[in-house]
Design a protein around this nucleic acid. Sequence first.
DNA 1: ACTTTAATTCGGTAATTGCCTAAATAGCGT
DNA 2: ACGCTATTTAGGCAATTACCGAATTAAAGT
Lengths: 102, 102
Amino acid sequence: MEPVFRALADPTRRRILQLLHTRQMSAGEIAGRFTLAKPTLSGHLAILRAADLVSADRQGTSIIYRLNLSVLQQALLGFAQVFGIGLAKAPLGRRRLRTGAG
Amino acid sequence: MEPVFRALADPTRRRILQLLHTRQMSAGEIAGRFTLAKPTLSGHLAILRAADLVSADRQGTSIIYRLNLSVLQQALLGFAQVFGIGLAKAPLGRRRLRTGAG
DNA sequence: ACTTTAATTCGGTAATTGCCTAAATAGCGT
DNA sequence: ACGCTATTTAGGCAATTACCGAATTAAAGT
């Protein structure tokens, strides 16, 4: 929980999570969405990995990152509960995917 | 939202919010719950104020801090919604207050 | 084995953070 | 105005953070 909140503190890392919520993505593809250098993004991804907010799997020369939504949910839930804020999984199915070129 | 997540990153500040959820409290009383120096706590409170997570009202020589629960709720809601996580206000009424000496 | 592509690790820098003690500010009672 | 209590501001220090370019590691194709 501590590393999760620490990870969420940075806006770049929150954007990465949002990006990975739409679909899984390679490190390079993620880096391409930002104006930061790749080593910088790699560092952010390492922090997200340490917080278990994302998982990484090598696929050829690429490393594919995906969001661990349940970890994020659990962290938000645990925190929100302390304040009597209820938190519930959304009805199944994500936001509609965009078709065509992004 | 940015300053809120930045504020939530520190465990001391999260504990302060939890403390203020049970009841409002003076700066000194808050400081008494921690082993940190008062100026350090004062700094944390300033950050929470800047994020609008707490409000401060002078009452005599004391300054009474109270939690802005709705701001916390809104921040968590806004963030959670992006991930399709629903978040709802709890049924009215806080955690039972402790009677007697604390 | 060499090259290409993809990502990380290394080494270093500027800015921020969290902490402290000492000093200043603010209100209240005398 | 003086002293007491409560809190913040100021000044400084060590640790962490976010960033970069250069070098390294890893996998796959030639």
